[in-house]
């Protein structure tokens, strides 16, 4: 069983917020889920952690300059744009 404090900490790491009733439900659900995940804790730790071998990820493209997407297209999905820049609340 995980505590409400752990859930709050995870929410903070996840950049999520929950109302009080949601927090209680999430704590219960996370407790059940982590109980299922506990299965891995007793696994033989002499086995090496996974590292791809035969899949040699070497399909690198040539390092040549190419055109980027037009700025207007890239920022077109933002809800707040001014002068081709994203608008956010004042930081400093």
């Amino acid at each position: 069983m995980i505590s409400t404090e752990v859930t709050k900490h995870l929410a903070q790491l996840s950049r999520l917020s929950f109302k009080e009733d949601e927090l209680a439900e999430m704590t219960n659900q996370m407790s059940d889920i982590i109980a299922l995940m506990d299965k891995v804790c007793d696994f033989d730790n002499n086995v090496k952690t996974y590292a791809p071998k035969e899949e040699k990820f070497n399909n690198l493209r040539c390092d040549k300059p190419r055109n980027s997407y037009p700025t207007e297209e890239i920022i077109g999905n933002s809800k707040a744009v001014r002068d081709n820049c994203f608008v956010v609340p004042k930081v400093v």
Partner: peptide, 11 residues
């Protein structure tokens, strides 16, 4: 958790 899960992947 994560490291053991990765070991299981190898196994």
């Amino acid at each position: 958790y994560y490291k053991n899960a990765s070991r299981i992947r190898t196994k």
